[in-house]
Design a protein around this nucleic acid. Structure first.
Lengths: 331, 331
DNA sequence: GTGAAAGCGCTAACAT
DNA sequence: ATGTTAGCGCTTTCAC
């Protein structure tokens, strides 16, 4: 059995109230008693029970990160950013990976709603997050990456996906490409949609043709990238450049092109989304849109921490992206 | 304010006990009342308060993963494995990254000891984990990757680091290398020590020379790898092959060698530790020891789940590794 | 400066 | 089959 406050109290003949006060510094306690209490705590190796504290205080000093994605480089860094900032601000972090599964997500959210955490950072599986409007009334929520444009009052922090899509596409166009394919992985989310809008905007701007068949969906893994590019090249052999929206997929794309003896960037130029360490030493070095997921995570947690204190707090942040130019684009 | 069981009870004129029983299925309740209760729950959007439940039941159905490492590919996959298995078994997961900081680790463990979780999976910052002997009496703990050989009764799951080190080194030796360097990142942990033992064993076995200066420590990042290889080559120019013990560092190593126009594998052969997606398309493709961190994570959670139910449960698992042979070793 | 006691929202033993 | 009630270990008013 664990030692409780009551036992400590009895042992040194003070009240539990006093002990609580020296632990939390909630009231003045004489130096004498204070020492007595501290010693007893030390001696008994006493640790206050969190479950009791949580129940009584109606807060847990914990937050949850509910993320819906394959464990790629992007997500990894996001988790790291959130986790680090959480620790810095004295919060514990619950991690839920819902693997792009909406049912898991709703179940997790339901569980978290039960006062398990003081707030949630969520990267939802889809844009349709009506249930958030309700959840939000109970619990501070901040969205990362993906959001529902209809709910302007839920704070969010994202990369400027539109601009990133626009910039990457423009870069390809400036290299002379007129038939640019896109491989994305998750449909019906703002990240994908905004990047695609940027892509179309750039194409439109330069008066280039646009074909639905140049946009292909792939499973967000290496193998998924491989398959997707195979499909894309088969149905649209006129393609000379591809914009790949996930860091794991582009690896598969490179593998497949290589297997087919298609040269990068000579035959097909490539730009990826989400930079990662190895990109620089891949053959050829990959040009990527850099997203700073760790910064997104840190900022998201800061916003959450604010919103926990002040539920009215509300802020959107859209972070600039940058194009890390290496060789795969033809530069 | 949240709706409580009591309110539901009053609304439909049954006792809280009954409600608790229909929710938990702990006792037979008539179909009639059951329906009544369920409807009221639905109507009021009632969710049982976890903090109260946790306090009363003295368990949380949550586990913690305390990990002490840079967010490299290895850790990412480990987290994924643990997280997935946790969800499958109905547990929530708290994630604590202690960034190789022993003070953080102890603080986190202290917090977790306060009944926050039912068990802990820990990858400790160092081998000296005396405090674990005590912690373990309060809370089920299973170690991953790293352990303290003196505590045989703490369950653990690791890769067979010794064998992996032995195999990788042997492979290099068979390619004719006689001066093999090692770059590691974290000292005083069994992972590093066992890999190093494997390295020495192989060298001894083949009657090759051994020099302390061939073993160099680097910070476990890309930049750390860069610096370490610079040092290594400077102080021991006779080196013709390097065994790099972390996936991020080897990227820096490749970058640095390339910058110095040192050819891989002709001038320096390379084997890395911990395989990752991009390794296959790096120039040259990297030969790596494959570790299966996700499997380690899954197994660790299974052991923990067992130990939570039966504190006597006790098991060590050492997983086989394999050498993924590509080009950087000279094959 | 210190203590008594109520009560957070549940579960489970016990009574009916 | 259902209800009553005593806590779980803490925090926090209120009294002294």
């Amino acid at each position: 059995m664990s030692v409780t406050m009551k036992m400590i109290a009895k042992e040194i003949g003070v009240s539990v109230a006093t002990i609580s006060h020296v632990i939390n510094g909630t009231k003045k306690v004489s130096e004498e008693t204070r020492r007595l209490v501290l010693e007893a705590i030390e001696r008994n190796n006493y640790v206050p029970d969190m479950t009791a504290k949580n129940l009584r205080r109606k807060k847990t000093k914990a937050a949850a990160l509910v993320i819906s994605s394959y464990p790629d480089n992007y997500v990894t860094k996001l988790i790291h950013g959130v986790g680090t900032r959480a620790r810095e601000l004295g919060y514990s972090l619950m991690l839920v990976n819902t693997s792009e599964n909406e049912a898991y997500e709703m179940e997790a959210l339901r569980l978290l709603r039960a006062n398990m955490v003081d707030g949630i950072i969520l990267s939802p599986a889809t844009n349709r997050i009506d249930y958030l409007a309700d959840l939000q009334r109970h619990l501070p929520v901040v969205l990362v990456n993906r959001y529902d444009p209809r709910f302007e009052d839920i704070p969010r922090v994202t990369a400027d996906d539109f601009q990133a899509g626009y910039d990457a596409t423009t870069h390809l166009i400036q290299h002379g490409h007129r038939h640019i394919g896109v491989i994305y992985s998750v449909p019906h989310v703002t990240t994908t949609e905004n990047r695609l809008r940027g892509y179309r905007e750039a194409i439109l701007r330069y008066g280039l043709p646009f074909k639905e068949s140049w946009i292909v969906r792939g499973f967000g893994t290496t193998e998924g990238g491989r398959l997707a590019v195979k499909t894309l090249l088969q149905q649209s052999p006129e393609i000379t450049a591809i914009f790949v929206l996930s860091d794991h997929m582009i690896i598969g794309v490179v593998q497949e092109l290589r297997d087919q003896s298609i040269r990068i960037p000579d035959d097909i130029a490539l730009i990826g989304f989400g930079d990662f360490e190895a990109a620089a030493i891949i053959d050829p070095p990959l040009t990527n849109v850099s997203l700073q997921p760790d910064t997104i995570g840190r900022i998201a947690f800061d916003i959450l921490a604010n919103k926990i204190v002040n539920p009215e707090y509300h802020k959107h942040v859209s972070l600039p992206t940058s194009l890390i130019i290496r060789k795969s684009c033809g530069c």
